[in-house]
Design a protein around this nucleic acid. Structure first.
Lengths: 214, 214
DNA sequence: CCGCCGTTGTTACCTGCGGTAACCCTAGCC
DNA sequence: GGCTAGGGTTACCGCAGGTAACAACGGCGG
């Protein structure tokens, strides 16, 4: 029957796609985000046009690749965020999970942050900034959802939770990126310091003697 | 005398450089960060090799261009951070200054965040992530310095202040980027919400009824 | 058995970019 | 006049993303 035939083909196409993605993964892991289509095709044992048949353009391949890693990371983070423990512990666990991930595979991290190769040709002129990687947007929205679900923020809770979600994710990202580059302290220390920051120690500490205060 | 001649030449070279930078500025403002060297040269009324004689390569030009804007922004932020007012007011003023800047000229903002066109050819393999723009690094370090100078953080104050500096800058950047893309609220509201976050409201708020709490 | 068609793959090419080598030309100085 | 110094140009290289046109394989209906 035609249906089984089509199904067969679709199944094989999907399998092929997975193969290609795995090859691309290997290359990106080795060469970083500037991996070329030629290199990826070579790694997969084929040539460029096939890649383009499967993914449209480089952005498509990169998006597909990013989706896999992003989903995996998001799963891990959700687990840490949903664990049964008090709030502070869970925030620390989530921060630690993120930092452990970027520490374990910096190349993947770098790739996930990079794909700002947007190339928005259609419109031009009134387009707004949008620099951050999609991963960060998704993380921010996810965290916002969790915050709004779990915490009582009073009126305007939707706005506030989203601001905080994206703000906290930004904090994590900024500090993590700096830390990953310089390694100025252990991961535990970084996690504790960031949690302290979120716990309002900045508002509590006293000014140094002799200055106008921070 | 030779010296006056050399001086003359150096002066003219510097002036030329400024002209070229201004032309590049115009193009980047118009075309975004993917402005090509050809376009910039055309805008300046000359051809590519001259650009390369002045700036070495594209990275050089972009770095020179970024330095100007970064310095200007840093000046504005320092002013806001050093104003004579209580701490909370100054934090809000600094946040607002940053957000106003990226709101006023998104293309410049986008350009400043982009130049991760690193292209580190020499080494390969053990290089670490490093995705953030130099601007954010400078901002983080600057803020860390201010924090350590002004606030009494006890032992480990150097580590802690740096973590907080980069964390806060990351928060500002992440939230700002999201806000600039979606404009979900007014700037004042965003500033207040972020300041609230830094002031520890996250630790203070109570859990919603019926859940395990955030 | 034969011709038809869709899938899978290839080679060979186009475009545009960053970057450079070689040449040109005008000015000033001996 | 001749001769070097800069500022300038044309023409090119290499490489990337992306595509058109063609070649093999396999099932299908006549």
């Amino acid at each position: 029957m035609e249906t089984t035939q089509q199904a067969e083909q679709q199944r094989s196409a999907r399998a092929r796609r997975r193969q290609l993605l795995e090859a691309a993964d290997r290359v990106v892991l080795r060469d970083g985000p500037q991996a070329s289509m030629n290199a990826i095709a070579a790694e997969a044992g084929i040539t460029k046009p096939i890649l383009y048949r499967h993914f449209g353009d480089k952005g498509g391949l990169y998006r597909a690749l990013a989706k896999r890693h992003t989903d995996a990371l998001l799963d891990a983070l959700r687990t840490a965020l949903d664990a049964p423990a008090e709030r502070r512990r869970r925030v620390e666990a989530t921060l630690d999970t993120y930092l452990a991930a970027i520490e374990a595979r910096p190349q993947v991290y770098r790739f996930l942050m990079h794909p700002a190769e947007d190339a928005q040709l259609p419109e031009q002129g009134f387009d707004v900034g949008r620099h951050s990687a999609p991963l960060l947007r998704r993380l921010g929205e996810e965290l916002a959802k969790v915050i709004e679900e779990r915490v009582d923020l009073g009126p305007d809770s939707e706005q506030l939770s989203r601001v905080w979600g994206h703000g906290i994710v930004g904090m994590m990202h900024g500090a993590g990126d700096w830390w990953l580059g310089e390694r100025p302290c252990s991961r535990e220390q970084l996690v504790r310091s960031l949690a302290d920051l979120l716990w309002g120690r900045l508002a509590d500490v006293s000014d140094r003697a002799g200055g106008p205060g921070f």
